[in-house]
Design a protein around this nucleic acid. Sequence first.
DNA 1: ATCGGCTCGCGCAA
DNA 2: TGCGCGAAGCCGAT
Length: 496
Amino acid sequence: MSTVPAIRLRTVNDAPPRAGGRYVLYWMIAARRTRSNVALQHARDEANARGLPLLVLEALGLDHPWASARFHAFVIAGMRDNAERLGDRYYPYVERTVGEGKGLLAALARDAALVVTDDAPVFHLPRLVAAAGKRLDVRLVAVDGNGLLPLRDAPSTPFPTAYAFRRHLQKTLPPHLARESWPEADPLAGEAASDAAPTVDPKIEARWPRGFDVDLAALPLDHAVGPVSGFPGGPVAAHARLRGFVARFGAYATDRNEPSADATSGLSPYLHFGHIGAHEVFDALAAREGWTADRVKAGGNGSREGWWHASAAAEGFLDQLVTWRELGFNVASRDPLHASYDGLPGWARATMEAHATDPRPHAYTRAQLEAGQTHDPLWNAAMRQLREEGRIHNYLRMLWGKKILEWSPSPREAYDTLVALNDRWALDGRDPNSYTSIGWVLGKHDRPWGPERPIFGMIRYMSSDNTARKYDVKPYLARWGEGATKPAARQGALFG
DNA sequence: ATCGGCTCGCGCAA
DNA sequence: TGCGCGAAGCCGAT
C-alpha cells in the first residue's frame, strides 16, 4: 500500500489506527520540506487509502538547550516556504513561552486516523518520538528519510571506519538507487483528496494559534546567537544554493580545501534542518554528470576511487554526501556514546590520556576561545566565521578543532568545548555529521599518525603555519580576521 | 616538488 | 597469516 520501501517504516507504538479519523497527520520534525520527503509520501499514501486529507504539523519549540534566534530564524524561513506549498493542510506553530506547545500534538492526534513522523537519529528527536509513541492513543509510524541507505540496512553495530562503511555501501546501496525505491520528487502531486481541507477543532486553533509570524526578539531565546547573513533558511533557499553549487561544480575537485574559494556546497545547514534531502542533492549532481544508477556496480573493496564511475569532482563530493554523511547517521543511530568523549576509539583516548599532564604552552578558557581571543589569528578568524556565519570552512574547521585539543587542559574538556561551541553556533551543530567531524579531530574514524607529539600523542596533528603554507589564507583573514571590516547587512531584519 | 616513514585495524585472499 | 588500504597529517631527505 505504501509507495515507501518497508525498510524505511517503523511502527512506534501498539495503538491501532483510529476509525473515523478526520485526517492523516504528518508531524514534521526532521524533514522540514514538502518535496522528496518519504515521510510525507507515506502519510499521503495512508491518506489516499482512507480517502482522507492530509494535515501537516510543523512545530518549533523553545524547550531545548540551544534554542537561539539563529536557529529559529532559519526554521521559520522554511515555514514560510512550506506554507506556500501546503496551504490549508499546514499547521505551523511557534511556541511563545516555554511549555506552551505541550499537548498540541496529542490534541491534533485525537482526530487523526494515523500519525506519521520522521525517524531521525538527530539531537533530541529520538526521545521526542519515543515519548509521543507512549502518549498517543493512535498509531504512530516513523519514517527514515535520512539518506540513500536506509538506516536499518546495516549491521546492528556501528561502523568504526569510513573504509568499512564504504565497503558496505558498495555492496548494499545499488537496489536503493533504483527508481522504485527513490522518493517521489513531489509527494503532494499524488494526493487524491487535495481539494478537501482537513477540519481542525477550533478549540485547538484557539489555544495553539497557527502561524509563524512571531517577534523573535520577544521570545526567550539565546539572542547572542543571532540570525546569520548569507544563509537564508528554507527549501527555496536550499535549492537556490544547490543550483549555484552545481553550476560551479567544476571547481570542486581542485578548490574544495581552499579557504578563500567558495567551492564547497554549503548545503550542510539545509540538510541538517531537512530543508533539502540527500536524494535531491544526489539527483542534481547526477543530472549534471549525465550519471545513471546502472553505473554503480555491486562489489568494491572500500576504496574511494572509481566506485561511482563519475568525474573526480563528483566522486569526491559523493564521498562527502553519501559515505561520510551517512556514516554519521549510522553511528548516531547505533552508538549511544556517539556524541561523547567516551565514544572515541580506545587507542585515541589512551594516547591523549597518556599526554594529559603534558604542559600546555597555550591554555585558554572556553570563554576566551568562544570570544576568539587567542594568539593565533587564523584560529580567531575561524571562530569569528563560526560566530557570525554559523559555519567554518570545511578545511579550517579541522584545524580549529585540533587547536582546541592543544589549548585545553584535558582531552575530555577539549571534546566538551568542541561540542559546546559547535552545538551553540553552527547551523549544522547537533547533527550526526557534526559529531563525526568533531570526533575526527580527536581520532574518531581516523588512525594513529606519528610521530608521537606532546599533548596529541598519536592523534593526527595540524598546524596553522602549514595550513598557511598549503593554502592561500590571506583573503580569509581579510574577511574574518581581526582587522576585517564587518560585512554589511548582518541585521536580522528578515523576521522583524 | 615529491617521497617515504610514522602506526593501527579491518576485511579479505590465501 | 599476510596484505592492501585508509578525510584532509607532519617532517626530513632527495
